[in-house]
Write a protein that binds this DNA or RNA. Structure first.
Length: 214
DNA sequence: GACCAGGCACATC
DNA sequence: GATGTGCATGGT
């Protein structure tokens, strides 16, 4: 399906909301931690966990490596699922130390396809978390698909409701210019739109995608 | 009190 | 290969 619609929708969202300045995290490591903690979780809860980690000066690979499971669990508790997320953070760190001596700089020199393969082999990192890390921590050209993307674009009949992650991703990447900055902004705009119009109080009349242009 | 959030792994059929 | 379920907190 060829679709200039995707560019059109992007332009409309960008005009409506402006740049989103993603990812909401300063360092590369903070992006990675946030990507894991935000799995099926509201970002406001993730922020509390990140604040706890920062207060304890624990937002670094070495500190996460050395910290005890129970104490890491206490710090990230506000982000929910804290037992499995503790394991997932530790899993990423074990990978980073066993293959890259704990260095994100070394990891960042990997080619995109190799990076993707390795991230997906880490227990607790699935397609979305992997692609979020690739795009927002390592600036690789991959389009991130999430629940909002599927919901919004299937509602507008651009993707099938039952389409899986890779189908949706392929649709976007086949029909958009392959630019990291565009992928970055588009996903952020979709999340912004989803939060405001597809959550507790959907108001489709006010949605920028439904307003007539002009 | 019910329902949901920027998923993922695992069990079961 | 498809479908169901556990994981947990905090906001509406």
């Amino acid at each position: 399906m060829k679709s200039g619609r995707l560019v059109e929708i992007y332009n409309r969202l960008y005009e409506f909301y402006g740049p989103q300045g993603w990812w909401p995290g300063k360092t590369r490591f903070e992006v990675i931690v946030g990507a894991i903690l935000t799995q099926n979780t509201a970002w406001s809860n993730v922020e509390k966990a990140i604040v706890n980690l920062k207060k304890a000066k624990s937002l670094s690979p070495k500190r996460i490596k050395d910290i005890r499971y129970d104490s890491l669990g206490r710090m990230i508790k506000p982000s929910g699922y804290y037992n499995i997320k503790t394991k997932r953070l530790k899993n990423f760190i074990s990978f980073l130390y066993s293959k890259y001596a704990g260095s994100l700089d070394r990891l960042s020199t990997q080619r995109a396809d190799k990076l993707k393969e390795e991230l997906l082999h880490i227990n607790g990192i699935g397609p979305e978390t992997c692609d979020s890390i690739m795009l927002y921590a390592f600036k690789k050209k991959v389009f991130v698909v999430d629940a909002y993307t599927k919901r919004i674009f299937s509602r507008h009949s651009l993707v099938k409701e039952a389409a899986d992650y890779h189908e949706v991703q392929k649709f976007f990447m086949d029909n958009l210019p392959k630019r990291e900055k565009l992928y970055n902004e588009y996903h952020a705009l979709i999340v912004r739109l989803g939060k405001e119009f597809c959550q507790s109080k959907p108001n489709c009349k006010e949605c920028p995608l439904n307003k007539s242009s002009g």
